[in-house]
Design a protein around this nucleic acid. Structure first.
Lengths: 159, 159
DNA sequence: TATTGTTATACTCTATAACTATA
DNA sequence: TATAGTTATAGAGTATAACAATA
């Protein structure tokens, strides 16, 4: 029996590939003035009437991060905050006509970047690759480990 | 021919899986008081005599980040800065006896976390998965896109 | 002149706290 | 009392600038 070998460096493979893909996506979307977050919000706000909180959950961002993202979309004239018809606390994100057009463009861009990755995978391996990744993401690598201490210490309350 | 469908969300697959794996690795290494960076430096400093700059390149970190990492290793008694025999500007990172033991432990931890991931991949798919990931990392997703504007604006010089 | 390593700190990102309006 | 959204800002991470020592 051959000696024990180090396991393949799965961390490097996933970290590096996701990092490079992220820079590529950011660069591609930047050409039409969007960030990945703006694209995400735009697309999901188009699907149906959604409030900021709902969109924040979908995009896995904090509600305060959501505020910044919506500010950017409003400043670019791509979306508007509208009062919710059913909850006067909440604001629905309405995509403008221009926003809808940009969303179509950005979706094409995103699809293009993803297609380029998949085209780089040999035909006969593509299905297995996607199956394995989907399996990991919904199974063994579905849930982040809870860090015993939060990402940041609770802020000093100085009242 | 069926209508065009959105491409699989490769960004999500890679981002999510790498993020979860990263939290898991951080949690596992934290149990012996290491960060991933400390582990990385420890292991590569053990392989052969290396200076901070060389170790920084291997771990893809800034030299100032390297300073912090080596500070942590020294504080934990796992490594020491030694003057280089050939370049009086440079410092070689010497792993202590305790550091070497910890490195063995941390390597076992890292291998264990990686093995758990691969064990979650069906036997018959594992080889293809690794082949594809290695292919992407050394091919289509080898090099990050150069951001036209740097990650951070140049700092104001106030001399 | 260029490079190693250091210190100090500015910049970005993100999340906590506190608040207002409403449920 | 709890929740949606906002503002202000603290905390963490990281990289730039400047510097001393040396090449």
């Amino acid at each position: 029996m051959s000696p024990t070998r180090a396991e393949p460096d799965v961390s490097f493979l996933l970290d590096h590939s996701s990092h490079v893909l992220r820079t590529r996506m950011a660069a591609a979307l930047a050409e039409i003035g969007l960030t990945a977050r703006m694209h995400c919000v735009l697309v999901h706000a188009l699907e149906e009437e959604r409030t900021q909180i709902q969109l924040a959950e979908i995009g896995d961002m904090d509600k305060t991060t959501m505020v910044v993202t919506v500010d950017a979309l409003e400043a670019a004239g791509l979306a508007e905050r509208k009062p919710s018809a059913t909850d006067r606390r909440a604001r629905v994100i309405a995509v403008t006509e221009k926003g809808a057009e940009v969303a179509k463009q950005s979706q094409r861009i995103v699809d293009g970047v993803h297609k380029a990755v998949l085209d780089a995978v040999p035909n006969e391996d593509r299905e297995v690759f996607l199956r394995v990744m989907n399996g990991l993401v919904s199974g063994h690598l579905a849930t982040p480990v809870e860090t015993s201490q939060p990402a940041r210490r609770a802020r000093q309350s100085n009242k």
